[in-house]
Nucleic acid binder design. Structure first.
Length: 374
RNA sequence: GGACAGGUGGGUGAGUGGUUAAAGCCAACAGACUGUAAAUCUGUCCCUCCUUGCGAGGUACGAAGGUUCGAAUCCUUCCCUGUCCA
């Protein structure tokens, strides 16, 4: 994996670049649709590749390890072949499940002991094992196991979790390099900066991860319930510490109008379940703000969801029809809504990238900010 | 015409003398959702009023009467529905 920096905004931290992977080139800044269980819920791979033109998607180590299992995926030719997705795949390590499944796990210095949410079986996830599982998947970008904390957390707790995350990252790297020598994997492994909402911890964490000389760095532990301003603040204190010539990935963000804010702070990669999950819950993102399509006001609205949107859903269907599908619980709704929301996110990122390349990102950002004030 | 079984809030359906304006589910309405245990979850869901409170009135379990301190619950008559028999 190689990162090629193409342009930098003179007024902000925004950058445009290319990530070269074994499964294609990723234009950055990029938004990565989340496909936890080897599927972006409601969207066929054909639409992901054609209509959406997504260059990379996410999948999840914890979920795919439990079902169908990494050995099965390996036997099926790897994750790309298994799910018929020839483009890039980033897999999260299961670190987020430390947070989201906090009732079902126990953390030790060795790793995370999960009790499966499916059948209660115990599974120990370690920095080494999660590398091995992701190697079995054949992920293009693998994530190091980290400890994602809830918010709020005390400085002491955050420090302990951050220390553990650093240790685990080094352990994971050592293991990964050994494996690389054995099998010549072209995968990249990203360590994750933690430290909760404490700038000093974020700094220490970043500094201690730098010796890994990783091909990319992630900022994790955000979007766990903290005020939005804090997420941006933590990003802002961290990105300047990360290597300029490596992609930076902020995990789990954000709302559409926050995307350029992260980009302005030097972020190249983002992912979030909001466009897909909210779509299924009747909440659509548009160029004019949100359209909660399930609301009664759209009952007889013949307009498209977003007249400015190029997606199949907006080109073809009325708000009234989409609301009807939602009300009736029709499965097509999830597909059409998710296709739209992801189009909105990906097109937004393409606009952002374009503006950086053209040198007009500052104006773009100001436009987004003044629109938010109105 | 006769015999049974029934009629409960938008629907379904509990409740068979007293914390019952009436469970649960569904529908409807509103909200939440940020490296997905999510096609999930939460709230509201008879009317009116206010000092918005486990607040005050009013109306309500087919209809009308009755029994009772008290009735969706017991009695009488009527209306309606379903099944069966003529």
């Amino acid at each position: 994996m190689r990162f090629e920096l193409q342009a930098e905004c003179p007024d902000t931290g925004a950058r445009a670049g290319l990530i070269h992977t074994a499964h294609g080139i990723i234009e950055t800044p990029v938004f990565m649709p989340v496909g936890t269980q080897a599927t972006v819920k409601g969207v066929a791979q054909r639409d992901l590749a054609n209509d959406l033109d997504a260059k990379i998607i996410l999948a999840n180590t914890y979920h795919l390890f439990l079902r169908p299992g990494h050995e099965l995926i390996r036997a099926m030719g790897g994750l790309h072949q298994f799910m018929s997705w020839p483009r890039a795949i980033l897999t999260d390590s299961g670190g987020f499940q430390v947070f989201s499944l906090s009732d079902l796990r126990k953390i030790t210095s060795e790793g995370v002991l999960f009790r499966s949410h499916l059948d209660g079986d115990a599974h120990l996830f370690t920095p080494e094992s999660t590398v091995d599982v992701q190697l079995a998947f054949g992920s293009d970008i693998m994530m190091a196991l980290d400890e994602c904390l809830e918010y709020p957390a005390t400085h002491e707790t955050a420090n302990r979790a951050m220390r553990r995350t650093v240790d685990w990252a080094h352990t994971a790297y050592q293991h990964f390099r050994n494996r690389q020598q054995e099998n010549g994997s072209t995968a990249a492994l990203f360590p994750i900066v933690q430290g909760s909402m404490f700038a000093d911890l974020r700094r220490v964490c970043a500094e201690e991860l730098l010796p890994l000389d990783a091909p990319g760095y992630a900022i994790g532990g955000l979007s766990v319930g903290e005020p939005r301003s804090l997420s941006l603040e933590m990003t802002e204190v961290t990105t300047p510490l990360l290597p300029r010539d490596r992609p930076r990935y902020v995990m789990g963000v954000g709302m559409p109008d926050e995307l350029p804010e992260y980009v302005a702070r030097g972020v190249d990669m983002m992912d979030c379940v909001l466009p897909s999950r909210n779509a299924r819950n009747g909440y659509l993102f548009t160029s004019a703000g949100r359209v909660v399509i399930k609301q009664a006001r759209y009952r007889d609205d013949p307009a498209p969801v977003d007249p400015k949107c190029r997606c199949y859903t907006c080109r073809t269907f009325s708000r009234a029809y989409l609301r009807h599908l939602f009300q009736a619980g029709e499965i097509l709704f999830a597909s059409l809504a998710t296709l739209h929301n992801l189009t909105h996110y990906l097109d937004t990122m393409r606009q952002i990238r374009q503006s950086i390349l053209l040198g007009s990102f500052r104006a773009y950002l100001d436009g987004v900010r003044s629109a938010a004030v109105e």
